[in-house]
Write a protein that binds this DNA or RNA. Structure first.
Lengths: 199, 199
DNA sequence: TGTACATCAGTGAACGCGCGTTCACTGATGTAC
DNA sequence: TGTACATCAGTGAACGCGCGTTCACTGATGTAC
């Protein structure tokens, strides 16, 4: 038992999974204070490690932001894939999954779209590729259902609607007296029918 | 002439319109580097004035951000009013005016919606009221055309679509090979018709 | 018309702070023999 | 199985920086008499 104990203490010097721990702390920071609050020193502090140790895993704070954005897009794509109903071809589930992701990770979602760290959304080819992949999920879904000429407009239309709705909700700008889940569903329904014509 | 000259030099000590000058520099900064680049010292530097002088006009940097957001919402509401065609009842012109504003002032637009300076979008009652006014422009326009039950959903639908589209464009995430103006118009048209049904 | 004075809008110097990053180091790990 | 050593992942101290803000001040303005 003293042996095990000593081993546990020793193993604290070499963290073992510092990279993951740093990213985890970064995400927590992101959710608590938004992209602006992301700080290398604070991340290290939270993990209980000296600041320079981060440089064994990331070249800079920007690199951390980029890694976080990558993580975010990867998870978003997964969530979209999981929600996409090959059978029905309905779009609403994917839209709701998208918004659920944004609501669960508002700070990360903002980072992914360039809030604060422009570098994270712009400079990284990996992030660009992942964002493209997310977008293609939407397009390929539409391709099954629509004439080819309509696809590009419909994809942009859907993406803008979903992105905007996600941000408005994250920002707390939804009329809070109403059930958000119901509002979201109604909005997506209206995407299918269009704004009702005046009789 | 020497008299005038002296006077001109003297008048440089008392700036005369420092508040406006500071806001102007703030906006320039916003457009160059985004909300993150907003800095009291840099603003003062650009105006050619010492940093503490700003405190005769604003209580803090946050107060400057708030004032800028207020300015932005005021201008946005004006742009919407100007574009709203009482006659036709068409929605597209207002949507296009909204997006034109965001494209012309991307940094300011981001600030208005909480990017970077949460205080500017959240803490100020004036900003909240202005944002509400902008939203009511949309709603009142719809009220003329729609059954009352549809208005709240349609308003949120339109706002989310427009907000999302504006941000995607600002972020440069539009497929750049296409004419943006045409894309915008098509997307707004689809808001009226809905996504085409599969034959 | 001229002068005294309160008021206001600027100034320079200084504060403490937290940041990202670099440096020379040391402790732990794993591999070759 | 034990030892030498290269490699890797951590450390503390220090760097320079720019920031927001406070302070005691001074120069300019406008008003009362």
């Amino acid at each position: 038992m003293p042996r095990t104990q000593r081993k546990a203490v020793q193993s604290r010097y070499h963290h073992g999974a510092l990279r993951e721990a740093l990213l985890g702390a970064g995400r927590a920071l992101l959710e608590e204070g938004g992209p602006r609050a992301l700080s290398l020193r604070e991340i290290a502090r939270r993990v209980g490690v000296s600041a320079p140790s981060a440089y064994h895993h990331f070249a800079s704070l920007d690199a951390i932001a980029i890694a976080l954005a990558e993580q975010g897009f990867t998870e978003l794509v997964q969530a979209l894939d999981a929600a996409t109903p090959a059978a029905t071809g309905l779009l609403t589930p994917a839209g709701e999954a998208y918004i659920a992701f944004a609501r669960a990770n508002p700070g990360l979602y903002r980072l992914m779209f360039g809030d604060g760290f422009l570098a994270a959304s712009t400079a990284s080819a990996a992030v660009g590729a992942l964002r493209k992949r997310a977008y293609e999920r939407v397009e390929s879904n539409l391709q099954k259902r629509l004439a080819a000429t309509h696809v590009p407009t419909a994809a942009l239309f859907l993406w803008a609607l979903t992105h905007g709705l996600a941000l408005l909700i994250i920002d707390g700008q939804l009329n809070s007296s109403r059930d958000p889940q119901a509002m979201i569903r109604q909005v997506f329904q209206m995407a299918g029918t269009g704004i009702p014509r005046p009789a």
